[in-house]
Amino acid sequence: MVVDRSPRLDHVFHALAHPARRAIIRQLSGGERNLTELAAPLKMTFPAATKHVRVLEGAKLVRRRVVGREHLCRLDAQPLKEAMLWTESFRQSWEARFEELDSLLDEMKADEQARARRR
């Protein structure tokens, strides 16, 4: 299951690795937009913006539907959730250890101070 998931996550991470694509995701978090609307704030040509949208589509982060002559894009956050979750559980298991280390260090500091006072 974990192994099957990995190639898809590669797509997601690759898709997120470009600032223009992250900007597109931010825009789409506000709702459905057409390609012209997406291209405008990026100061990019229409074909260049389309290329980035296609990478996002490949990672299944963006879905596109055609209405008349308009290409409407919307965000699908599910793969994003999985990608965050993937590293988040690793992070949490280490954080749990480091929180134990925090309390251990507090005890060690208190012990040292107590010893110093006795001297």
């Binding site: 974990v2 990995s6 959730k81 979750l85 559980s89 690793f90 949490q92």
Partner: peptide, 19 residues
């Protein structure tokens, strides 16, 4: 990748809810 993914199953539901 395998190491990063380890522990993904446990607590997955809790993480989803958080996310």
């Amino acid at each position: 990748d395998g190491a990063l993914a380890s522990g993904m199953d446990e607590g997955m539901e809790a993480c989803y809810q958080q996310l």
